[in-house]
Write a protein that binds this DNA or RNA. Structure first.
Length: 856
RNA sequence: GGGCGGUUAGCUCAGUUGGUAGAGCACCGGCUUUACACGCCGGCUGUCACAGGUUCGAGUCCUGUACCGCCCACCA
C-alpha cells in the first residue's frame, strides 16, 4: 500500500478490525507449547449492564499487555467471556419475557415465550429460563463485541464463553462435586446472613456497611439474685443498651467482659427478660466491650455476627423470631412453648409483634416497654453502620437455614501463602488480599435461594415418612454433568419418584455468582474438556481485574484452583484502578455520570482513548479526561505525518555514517531496553511516557536537523545515511507504539511492511546498534542537539523572526562537553538553524543570532 | 478501630538507587518552516499537604499530624 497524500485517522477502526478478523491476526495457535503461550483470564463483563468508560480503561490495559507479549514472541491466549449470571440478568429476563423461574417445574422443550409479556408472569423451568437468558443476551453480546473490536482488543473472537453456558455449568458443577466428595464443600444448617427482600442467603463478601439512623434503647432486665446481693448492688435490675429492642423475645443470654467489676457478681446468675419473663443467664466473654453501651449486652438469636459467635462459643440455645421474609414469626409462650415466668403476659406482648417487620416491631415494642416501665428514658438517637447485602434495600438479618459452604477458615494459611506466590501489579494490592483472608470469619456460603444460575448437581432422598434426608445428599456422576436436579433424575431413581416417599427431591438452590465466576480459569482453558488446550494454557499467566473485587473474584479463584489443582490459577494479577469523574468520585451508573464509550471512540479515535487509558498505570485511579484523549489523537496524527515524511520519496540505500544518525539510533536503542523492561513489569504507563517523549524529540529535533541533508544538500552518501536511519528508527518506534496506538501503527506499517505490526517482533537494542555501527560520542551529540536547537530558536523568536528564517550567523557558547558534542554534528546543526555561519565556543552559555542585513 | 494508597504548576500527572523541581493541557506571545495549522517555536506558573528527624544535601529515607480515596472490622 503506498504512502497516502493526506493520512487520516478516520476509518482506521473499521478498516483494521475487518482485516484482523479476515486474516486471523489474533487467532490462538494451539500447537504452541505452554512455555510459549501467554494466557489471560479476561474478566467477563455483565451483559445485562452497559459497558462504560471504566471497562474501556481497564480492558485497554490488558490489551496493551497482550500485544506486547504477542510481539515478544508469545502466543497469546486471550478469550472473552460474558457474565450472564446473577440477579441483574434474572430480573431482566423476567421483565423482558414476562416469565418467572420456577425450579420445581421440569424442562419443557416446546416452550416459547409470548410475543408481548403478559401482566401475569408465566412460570417456566430453570432450563427454560436459562434458554431465554441466552436468547436475550445474544444481542447484548453482539453490541459488546462490536465495542471491544472497535476499541481494538486483540481478543481471539472464536473463543468466547458465557458464565451460564453449558460448558461453564459443567465446569462449575464438576468442581463442586469434587469439593463435595472431598468434604471441602458441605451442607450445614447454620445461622446465615440473609436478605429479607431477595429471600436468599448472602456471603460475607457481598456485604457492605451503610450508615443508618438508629437509637440506643436502655432496657431493664430483672436480676434473680439473693436479696443480700441485690441490696449490696443497690438495684434489682441490669440495664442493657440495644439498638434492636424488637429482638428481646429472641434473647438467650446477657454477656459482659470477664474482668468487668460491675457485672462480676452477676456471672452465673439469671435475669428475666422484660415483657416476656424468660430466664436467661448472665455470662462472661472476652468479646464483650466494657466501653460499649452499658458494658453488658443481650445476646439474641440472631441480631448480628457477634451474637452468632457468642451463641456458638457459649453453647446457647436458639430462640429465633425472625422469618425469612423479614417479619417476626408466630411463637407460643408458656408450658407448651417458650419458657416464661408469666406466659400470659408474654403471649399478649408477643402477639402484638408477630407478623410485623423488624422496623414496625421495634416501634411497637418500644410502646410496650414504655408502658411497662422497662424502658429507661427516651431512646437515644445515633447513626451507626449496619450491614446490607450490596444489592439489597433493607438491613441483613441472620437466619438459620440449610446452606452449602466451601471451607476457607481451616485453609487460611495456605491461602495466604498462595497470595504471596502471586505476582501482584502493583505489588501493594497484595495487602488487600491478606487483609481479606485474615478477616474471614466463616466458611464461604455458596448457595443462594434464587432460581436463576448454576444449579447444585445434588438430590436428596425422601424418607418413607415423607421427610427429606439432607444428610444423604446424592451427588451427580461427573460424566452426566451438567445436570439440573429439577429436571434430571438421580441414578437409581425413576422420574415418577420425585417428591414421593422413598423417592428423591432436587436441591432447589443455585450457586452464588462468585462460585461460578471463580472458575473462569478452568472454563477458558478447557479443563476436563480439551486436555490438550488445558495443558498449554493452565496455570494461566495473567488475571486482570479491578481492586474492588479482590475479596470476591480474585480470592475465590485462588481458592478453587488451590483445592482442585494445588496451584495458583495464574502467576500474575494486574489490578486496574477506577475511572473517576472530575469530582474524584468513582464513576458509576447510579450517579448518572457515566459516559457512553462508543461515542468517545468515534470522537477521539480508538487510539486517542487507548492513549488516555494507557496513561493510568496499574492500580492508579484515573480521572476521566477528554483532554488526554485529544493528546492521544494528536500523537496518532503525528505518527501518521512523520511516517509520511520518512517514507516519502525514494529511499536512498546506504549505510549510516553520520554521527547524528548514529547517536539517534543508539539513544533509541537505550530507549528500547528501557521501555521493554517497563513493559515486562507491567508498567505500560511508564513505557508509553518514555517512548512518547523520545518520539516527540525525534520529530521536533532530529527530523528537523537532518531534513536538509536528507534532501541531498550534502551529497548522496550523507542523504542515504539519514534515509536509512530514519527508516530504522521509524520501524522501531512503530513497534514500540503498536501496543498503545494499535490502529495507527498498523496502518503505517502497512504502507511499507508486510504482515501485521502486531505480529512483528518486538524491537531490540541490537537491531539498532547493528545499523548505527561504531560511534563513540554519537549519543552525546544527539542528546546535545535538542538544547542547542532550542536555545538558538529562542534567539530567533526573541528577534521576532520565524524559526525558518535564514540568518547571517549564530554564535553559540556552552560547556566543554556540550561544545565537543555539538562539533561532531556541526554541519547538521548549522543547516537546521539556517545560519550562514555557526560558531561554537567553550564559555559561559550564550546565544547570539545575527540576522541578515535585509531583515535586521 | 485496623490496613492500603494519595497529597508536586490553574488542570491531569511524571519524578526508579537522596545530588540545582519536570511534561502535557490551559494561558500569553510569535511563526505559512516544501511531513503535519489535528501544525511549529517560545514564555509564564510551584514554601513538592504540615511538623519534626537522619544527612554535607530530602519531593525522594524515618517519625508524627491533617485532609482525600479505597478496603476491612465482633457496629450491644
Amino acid at each position: 500500500m503506498p504512502v497516502p497524500d493526506k493520512p487520516a485517522l478516520e476509518g482506521l477502526e473499521e478498516k483494521w478490525t475487518a482485516r484482523w478478523e479476515a486474516e486471523g491476526t489474533y487467532r490462538f495457535d494451539r500447537s504452541r507449547p505452554r512455555a510459549e503461550v501467554y494466557a489471560i483470564d479476561t474478566p467477563p463483563p455483565t451483559v445485562s449492564g452497559a459497558l462504560h468508560v471504566g471497562h474501556v480503561f481497564s480492558y485497554t490495559h490488558t490489551d496493551i499487555v497482550a500485544r506486547f507479549q504477542r510481539m515478544r514472541g508469545k502466543e497469546v491466549f486471550y478469550p472473552m467471556g460474558w457474565d450472564d449470571n446473577g440477579l441483574p440478568t434474572e430480573r431482566r429476563v423476567q421483565n423482558y419475557f414476562g416469565v418467572r423461574c420456577d425450579p420445581s417445574l421440569p424442562y419443557d422443550p416446546a416452550f416459547t415465550p409470548p410475543d408481548k409479556p403478559d401482566k401475569h408472569a408465566i412460570s417456566v423451568s430453570r432450563p427454560n429460563f436459562i434458554e431465554l437468558c441466552a436468547r436475550l443476551t445474544v444481542e447484548d453480546e453482539k453490541a459488546f463485541e462490536h465495542l471491544w473490536r472497535y476499541l481494538g482488543l486483540s481478543v481471539d473472537w472464536s473463543m468466547t464463553y458465557a458464565t451460564i453456558g453449558k460448558r461453564a455449568q459443567r465446569v462449575s458443577q464438576m468442581l463442586f462435586v469434587r469439593l463435595a466428595r472431598r468434604g471441602l464443600a458441605y451442607k450445614l444448617e447454620a445461622p446465615t446472613l440473609w436478605d429479607v427482600d431477595f429471600k436468599t442467603a448472602v456471603a460475607q463478601a457481598e456485604l457492605e456497611d451503610r450508615e443508618q439512623p438508629g437509637a440506643y434503647h436502655r432496657i431493664h432486665f430483672k436480676t434473680m439474685l439473693p436479696r443480700a446481693v441485690s441490696q449490696e448492688m443497690g438495684v434489682d435490675y441490669v440495664a442493657i443498651e440495644t439498638t434492636r429492642p424488637e429482638l428481646i423475645p429472641a434473647c438467650v443470654a446477657l454477656v459482659a467482659h470477664p474482668d468487668d467489676e460491675r457485672y462480676r457478681p452477676l456471672f452465673g446468675s439469671h435475669v428475666t427478660t422484660p415483657l416476656f419473663g424468660a430466664r436467661v443467664p448472665v455470662l462472661a466473654h472476652a468479646l464483650a466491650d466494657p466501653e460499649k453501651g452499658s458494658g453488658i449486652a443481650m445476646i439474641c438469636t440472631f441480631g448480628d455476627i457477634t451474637d452468632v459467635t457468642w451463641w456458638r462459643e457459649l453453647k446457647l440455645p436458639v430462640r429465633a423470631v425472625m422469618q425469612p421474609n423479614g417479619t417476626l414469626g408466630p411463637v407460643s409462650w408458656g408450658t407448651s412453648g417458650w419458657e416464661s415466668d408469666d406466659a400470659v403476659r408474654a403471649q399478649q406482648a408477643y402477639d402484638q409483634l408477630a407478623g410485623l417487620s423488624a422496623k414496625k416491631a421495634q416501634a411497637k415494642i418500644v410502646e410496650l416497654l414504655k408502658a411497662s416501665g422497662e424502658l429507661h428514658g427516651e431512646p437515644k438517637p445515633i447513626t451507626h453502620a449496619v450491614k446490607f447485602y450490596e444489592k439489597g434495600d433493607r438491613p441483613l438479618e441472620i437466619i438459620t437455614s440449610r446452606q452449602w459452604f466451601i471451607k476457607t477458615i481451616e485453609h487460611r494459611e495456605q491461602l495466604l501463602e498462595r497470595g504471596r506466590q502471586l505476582q501482584w501489579h502493583p505489588d501493594y494490592m497484595q495487602a488487600r488480599y491478606e487483609n481479606w483472608v485474615n478477616g474471614l470469619n466463616g466458611d464461604w456460603c455458596i448457595s443462594r435461594q434464587r432460581f436463576f444460575g448454576v444449579a447444585f448437581p445434588v438430590w436428596y432422598p425422601v424418607r418413607a415418612d415423607g421427610t427429606v434426608d439432607y444428610a444423604g445428599a446424592i451427588l451427580a456422576e461427573e460424566a452426566t454433568l451438567p445436570i439440573d436436579p429439577s429436571t434430571d433424575v438421580p441414578p437409581g431413581y425413576a422420574a415418577e419418584q420425585r417428591g414421593q416417599p422413598g423417592g428423591f427431591v432436587g436441591d432447589p438452590d443455585v450457586m452464588d455468582t462468585w462460585a461460578t465466576s471463580s472458575v473462569t480459569p478452568q472454563i477458558v482453558t478447557m479443563w476436563e474438556h480439551d486436555a490438550d488446550v488445558f495443558e498449554r494454557t493452565f496455570p494461566m499467566d495473567l488475571r486482570p481485574q479491578a481492586h474492588d473485587i479482590i475479596r470476591t473474584w480474585l480470592f475465590s479463584s485462588v481458592l478453587r484452583a488451590h483445592f482442585e489443582h494445588g496451584s495458583l490459577p495464574w502467576s500474575h494479577a494486574a489490578i486496574s484502578g477506577f475511572v473517576l469523574d472530575p469530582d474524584r468520585k468513582k464513576m458509576s451508573k447510579s450517579k448518572g455520570n457515566v459516559v457512553t464509550p462508543l461515542g468517545l471512540l468515534q470522537e477521539y479515535g480508538s487510539d486517542g482513548v487507548r492513549y488516555w487509558a494507557a496513561r493510568g498505570g496499574p492500580g492508579v485511579d484515573t480521572a476521566f479526561d477528554v483532554g488526554q484523549m485529544k493528546i492521544g489523537r494528536k500523537l496518532a496524527m503525528k505518527v501518521l505525518n512523520v511516517s509520511k515524511f520518512t517514507l516519502a520519496g525514494d529511499h536512498l540505500d546506504g549505510p549510516v555514517t553520520e554521527t547524528l544518525d548514529r547517536g539517534m539510533l543508539l539513544n533509541l536503542a537505550a530507549l528500547v531496553t528501557d521501555a521493554t523492561t517497563e513493559l515486562e513489569q507491567y508498567e505500560y504507563a511508564r513505557a508509553l511516557a518514555k517512548v512518547e517523549s523520545f518520539f516527540w524529540d525525534f520529530c521536533d529535533n532530529y527530523v528537523e536537523a537532518t531534513k536538509s541533508r536528507r534532501y541531498g544538500d550534502f551529497g548522496p552518501a550523507a542523504a542515504a545515511s539519514a534515509s536509512t536511519a530514519l527508516r530504522a528508527a521509524l520501524s522501531v518506534m512503530l513497534r514500540l507504539l503498536a501496543p498503545f496506538l494499535a490502529f495507527t501503527c498498523e496502518d503505517v506499517w502497512s504502507w511499507w511492511q508486510r504482515g501485521s505490526v502486531h505480529r512483528a517482533s518486538w524491537p531490540t537494542a541490537a537491531e539498532l546498534s547493528v545499523v548505527a555501527g561504531d560511534a563513540a560520542g554519537a549519543r552525546e551529540a544527539h542528546t546535545a542537539l535538542a538544547a542547542a536547537l532550542g536555545a538558538i530558536r529562542k534567539g530567533k523568536t526573541d528577534q521576532k523572526v520565524s524559526v525558518g528564517t535564514e540568518v547571517e550567523a549564530v554564535a553559540y557558547a556552552g560547556g566543554d562537553d556540550e561544545i565537543r558534542a555539538l562539533r561532531a554534528i556541526e554541519r547538521d546543526l548549522k543547516a537546521a538553524v539556517r545560519a550562514g555561519a555557526l560558531r561554537l565556543t567553550v564559555g559561559e552559555p550564550s546565544v547570539a543570532v545575527t540576522l541578515k542585513p535585509a531583515e535586521a
